[in-house]
């Protein structure tokens, strides 16, 4: 028969890891519908509906402002505690949701993935995009307070760095999703990680400047060695950028911002590689 054209060829053990970009492009509608499904199913049969997206960060912020801000005095100088904690919580929620929800991609969707083929990367992408809806609601909520504090002149100074917002958002989701899919790839074999991940993420929050202002902490900011080490956490420069642009508090360390991007891209690349390797046979181990 000579040259034979095949639309699809499935081979055993391909050495080169193949990422189905063409299929992914064709699955745009699926991604969109999956995002919708996540959103709709999440708030169906709840009385408050999407208001839950606000309630969560709101109460976290109130508690943080009281405990860490008022009682422990860890807030930033010159900025109201409430908006300081709200901004941190909102961006951290985006990151941690991307990470936590993607960490269970394979195990949670084994039912569907075990029955039909579609480019598996659809799932983490859709999960990440779903987070933008939640984030959008929370962000709008935050903006109201930013505007309020600007008008009342309480030391909140949004500035042109706001233009970095798209970059900040992309980086946050890519980093969170990248880590999430690394974990989900590993959990197909080792369920231990699914136990560890929620707990690990909540600890990570304390290694990032969410509950306290790093710049008014001498032990952090002025001891250079600690600072270098602390700033290697890729989330920290993102939070700093976000807070600086909307509140005008803190500072941007461009070196570490760059390093943070490098780690983000590395994490994403490793994540996609691991994911593509696992997706071929994960049904046998999951």
């Amino acid at each position: 028969m000579g040259e034979q054209h095949w639309d699809v060829v499935i081979r055993a053990q391909e050495k080169k890891i193949h990422i189905d970009l063409k299929g992914l492009k064709k699955s745009r509608d699926l991604i969109f519908l999956w995002v919708r499904r996540n959103f709709v199913s999440r708030y169906k049969q709840t009385v408050l509906g999407p208001a839950w997206a606000i309630i969560q960060p709101f109460f976290t912020t109130v508690v943080f402002s009281l405990v860490f801000g008022e009682i422990a005095g860890l807030g930033a100088a010159g900025v109201p505690n409430f908006i300081f904690y709200l901004s941190g919580t909102v961006i951290w929620t985006l990151f941690s949701n991307c990470l936590n929800q993607n960490a269970t991609t394979f195990v949670a969707n084994a039912g569907i993935m075990g029955k039909v083929y579609f480019p598996r990367l659809v799932m983490p992408i859709a999960t990440a995009l779903s987070q933008y809806i939640t984030f959008g609601i929370q962000f709008a909520f935050m903006l109201i307070f930013v505007i309020y504090y600007v008008i009342t002149g309480q030391g909140v100074h949004p500035n042109l760095f706001i233009l970095f917002l798209p970059l900040v958002l992309i980086q946050t989701t890519v980093l969170g999703t990248g880590l999430g899919i690394i974990i989900s790839s590993l959990t197909t074999k080792y369920r231990d990680l699914s136990m560890a991940v929620g707990f690990f993420v909540s600890l990570w929050q304390y290694a990032s400047p969410i509950a306290y202002d790093m710049f008014s902490r001498r032990s952090l900011y002025e001891r250079r060695f600690v600072y270098y080490f602390y700033m290697l956490n890729p989330v920290t420069p993102i939070i700093n950028m976000f807070r600086y642009s909307f509140l005008g508090t803190g500072e941007i360390d461009w070196l570490y911002y760059g390093i943070s991007w490098v780690s983000t891209i590395a994490v994403a690349a490793i994540g996609v590689r691991m994911f593509s390797k696992v997706e071929r046979t994960f049904m046998d181990t999951v």
């Binding site: 699809v8 499935i10 055993a12 993935m113």
Partner: peptide
């Protein structure tokens, strides 16, 4: 294997 849920250990599946 045919519907690509999991990959074969050996061999090849082609389809149009």
């Amino acid at each position: 294997l045919i519907c690509r849920v999991t990959a074969p250990t050996k061999g090849e599946i082609c389809m149009n």
